[in-house]
């Protein structure tokens, strides 16, 4: 999709307004040029790139585990009614609550190292995959289950060739939400315990309250968020190109 002229105009106007605001109160609003300078400084003097790369690596590791775990759970409650009856209320409860509140408990259990960050990401993210996967499995069984029975497809062939491909668009729709949650979780974790990464960059900005730095760090976070969401969206479209997108 190419951006429309109006969209570009909107961005240009915002940048111009920001630059103008910066000439009056640079201590309060910074400005595009000041932020650009600050970004260069952070990249040269600070460890901007390694910190961001490390954060993304941790995030991807935790996210992979969370997606696997969440999708599997969703598949099980989607496939087996008994499991859904027994455990779905708790899963709904977990979905309704800000799991990020559990971080202090995670510190008690896992300390403040890399293991803590991974556990936090998994805890906060896995649940976002459960219901897309469960819905996908149910829809897939509903749509193609009878077909499969009519042609005597069962066991692992039913699972691998019918249920999972049918559920895929739903799982893909869940991926984008989950990667955003994972980013939030890893950053909150780092911020809270001071584990070096994007979270500590935000923590430092929050401590110093230097406008240039505050905006520079927010832009870095935006870039990471946009990059991850775009990549996951792109990969998802490749994976389920045969079906229109679904919303969950």
């Amino acid at each position: 999709m190419t951006p429309s002229p109006r969209s570009l105009a909107g961005v240009a106007l915002a940048l111009a307004g920001w630059q103008l605001a910066g000439t009056f109160r640079p201590d309060f609003t910074s400005s595009p040029t000041l932020v650009a300078t600050e970004l260069v400084r952070l990249a040269r003097e600070g460890d901007l790139l390694p910190l961001v790369a490390g954060t993304v690596a941790t995030l991807l590791a935790g996210w992979t585990v969370a997606v696997t775990l969440g999708t599997l759970t969703g598949f099980l409650i989607g496939r087996y009614r008994l499991l859904a009856v027994a455990f779905e209320p708790y899963l709904v409860a977990l979905y309704s609550v800000p799991l990020i509140a559990m971080v202090p408990l995670m510190v008690i259990w896992f300390g403040i190292g890399e293991g803590f960050l991974l556990a936090t990401v998994v805890l906060a993210t896995a649940i976002t995959m459960v219901f897309p996967a469960a819905t996908g499995t149910r829809e897939s069984m509903r749509a193609y289950g009878e077909l499969a029975r009519a042609y005597q497809v069962s066991g692992h062939r039913l699972l691998l060739r019918v249920v999972l491909p049918g559920a895929l668009p739903y799982v893909v729709a869940g991926l984008r939400i989950s990667v955003q949650r994972a980013l939030m979780a890893v950053v909150v974790g780092q911020f809270l315990v001071g584990h070096p990464g994007l979270g500590t960059l935000i923590g430092d900005a929050r401590a110093r309250l230097d406008a240039d730095e505050v905006f520079a760090v927010a832009l870095v976070a935006l870039a990471v968020g946009a990059l991850l969401t775009t990549l996951v969206g792109w990969a998802g479209r490749r994976l389920s190109a045969w079906r229109p997108e679904v919303s969950t």
Partner: peptide
Amino acid sequence: RPLDQLLSPLLGALFLTPRIALVPLIALW
């Protein structure tokens, strides 16, 4: 629609920024 096209990129960018990264900005302001 025209207003949507004008403002959507900005709102979309704000949406993609992990909200936690706004904490320093909120503290500053």
